[in-house]
Amino acid sequence: MDIFLLEAIVNGILLGGVLALLALGLNLIFGVIDVVWIAYAELVMIGMYAIYWLHVFYGWPLLAACAVAILGVALAGVLVHRLIIAPILDTAPINQLLATGGLLFFLQSLATLLFGTNFRNIGLKLPIIEIGDMFLSYARLMAFVVAVLGAILLWLFLSRTFTGTAIRAIAQDRQIMGLMGVEPKRVYLIVSALGGGLAGLAACLLVLQYDVHPYIGLSFGPITFMICVLGGLGNLLGGFVAAFIMAQIISVGGFFFSIEMSYVLAFVFFIVLMFVKPQGLFSK
């Protein structure tokens, strides 16, 4: 097989890890609260800027900056829920999606206001790894490994803890959660923090590979939504698998065509599949 194609496939798998992490966060929020945070990728952008400024501007060690970014975006997630979602939780879900659309506008332009439209890079030079004849970026490999570790941690949390079990249960029967001693409002806040935290983690991994700018959310926000719908909104495992499928289309498509065309392919694939399997790839 063509070595460059093989490289594209491997890179697709690595990209899939980060996309899967984003899909997990969004799906978690959707599955539990039944809302779509259309500004999810913009929360990632905030995290990337936070790391950039703490690391480059204030000279913090990268790991500390990342830790703060994860916590900060988790807090942002809580605020999104408290300030935007909670007041309209009882109205049609589309309202919540649109309200977070307002947040998308706000965050994008706030970033422009504060940081300008320049592309910024943390300037970390990570080595290129040579495996056989293939060249792989160390940053991507690390991002993949951390993303998979993050997913495993999330899985452990969801399957082994009381709160995690409540998170899996709540969508199945909201009304009786009280009888279990669960306060849904608190679960929503926990999930919002968790979703934000995952966005923060994704920010740490993306800032190693990409420049940050106010519109970076647009380059992976929409694809993440499509991944979630494809996997079945709210279906964590489905979204996880769909992320790797979409990443392959993008990566291998980029090998054969241009990068934009590969995204077009991915979206068209999504649209077509929606009509074959409207409830997601893994519906029965």
């Binding site: 007041p87 309200a99 307002g102 994008q108």
Partner: peptide
């Protein structure tokens, strides 16, 4: 202040949906 208009739009959109749908 490039972007000022859109920050205000963003906030307004949220406020409209919450208070004046």
């Amino acid at each position: 202040l490039i972007g000022a208009a859109n920050t205000i739009y963003g906030v307004l959109l949220i406020l409209f949906i919450i208070f004046m749908p």
